[in-house]
């Protein structure tokens, strides 16, 4: 527990740095928020008036001070493009992205880990080559392309999948928000019909993302397994007459998991913010497309809110991974 608190305290300077840097970065971006916000017919006076209202005419240090004061109250500001408080929007959009990313990650792990293990155990075999082809294809095909392809085949031509209308069919009603994850909230509400609808909606985007996430997981599993399988304690285990599966699963895999878990964390946080294109193709109201839209419109508050949220998430995620690593590998407990 003490360790955890220490780690969190150590993350504080990082977060402060993030706050300062995002604030400065959004201010040096080209594009004039007031002009954009004032609309096409605005006169010079109208633009000035808006600049004053938004506090953009103040000197930078004062703007920063106001931003930090608001931040301590948990206020991330207002989005100009959607006209809503940033905190509320992130609160509804982050679960949407997280649900999609988690589903994709689970799917990717379910395929990539066994594939990587098999490829390592039977190095040079057919399955090893299949693994190589799949991972290469996974990374080299751009996600919007795989997304559109899946939509075309499974929705447009075959009609097996529901319309890519976002998290729910237009005629379904969203479940009362508890976790923000529709798959969980529908079950909590006991509404299996909506659960099925939400599950059907998530299949294609999750598959698209999973295809992309397959590659790093499978590659790292394979590489790490190969290294472990070649080490002496495995030879000893084999020499002691332990069965193949026991050696591979209990001894080798557990030891090979450390780098895999670390990579999983990276992949997760990367997918969460970077799946903008998947969100666009499937009209998924996620956090990535929110941030990009805001960036295009020079809308500072959502961009700052997004970066800050991601930074916090990163810190928590890294902490979680370290804790997980300690659980997996006793050596990590003393290393720190």
């Amino acid at each position: 527990m003490r360790q955890v608190l220490l780690r969190l305290a150590a993350a504080l300077p990082t977060l402060c740095g993030v706050v300062v840097v995002t604030f400065l970065l959004t201010r040096v971006l080209p594009g004039d928020t007031a002009t954009y916000f004032a609309g096409p017919t605005a006169s010079a006076e109208a633009i000035e008036q808006i600049r004053r209202e938004l506090g953009l005419d103040l000197p930078l240090p004062e703007q920063f001070w106001r931003y930090v004061v608001a931040l301590t109250k948990g206020d991330l500001g207002m989005s100009l493009t959607t006209g809503q408080p940033v905190r509320a929007e992130i609160a509804t959009r982050l679960p949407a992205s997280a649900e999609l990313t988690l589903c994709a990650l689970v799917l990717a792990i379910a395929i990539a880990m066994p594939l990587g293990v098999l490829a390592a155990v039977r190095q040079g075999s057919l399955i090893d080559h299949a693994c190589r082809v799949l991972t290469t294809a996974g990374v080299s095909l751009p996600v919007f392309f795989t997304g559109l392809l899946l939509v075309y085949v499974f929705y447009f031509v075959l009609g097996w999948m529901p319309a890519p209308l976002g998290r729910l069919d237009a005629f379904a009603t969203a479940p009362p928000q508890v976790s923000g994850f529709y798959l969980i909230d529908t079950l909590l509400a006991g509404d299996t019909g909506t659960f099925r609808a939400a599950a059907a909606q998530i299949v294609l985007p999750a598959t698209t993302l999973a295809l992309f996430a397959l590659a790093p997981i499978a590659r790292i599993t394979r590489a790490s397994m190969l290294a472990v399988l070649g080490s002496e304690f495995i030879r000893t285990a084999r020499a002691s007459g332990l069965s193949g599966p026991t050696v591979v699963i209990t001894y080798a895999l557990r030891n090979a998991l450390l780098p895999v878990v670390t990579v999983l964390g990276m992949v997760f946080s990367f997918l969460l913010g970077a799946n903008v294109l998947v969100e666009k193709v499937f009209a998924w109201p996620g956090i990535g497309s929110y941030a990009v839209e805001a960036l295009i419109a020079s809308d500072f508050a959502p961009v700052q809110g997004f970066v800050l949220t991601m930074a916090v998430l990163y810190v928590l995620l890294n902490l979680g991974i370290d804790l997980l690593n300690r659980a997996i590998d006793p050596r990590a407990r003393h290393g720190a």
Partner: peptide
Amino acid sequence: ARDIPSPST
């Protein structure tokens, strides 16, 4: 009225 950002979709 649903917002669907991708024109292909």
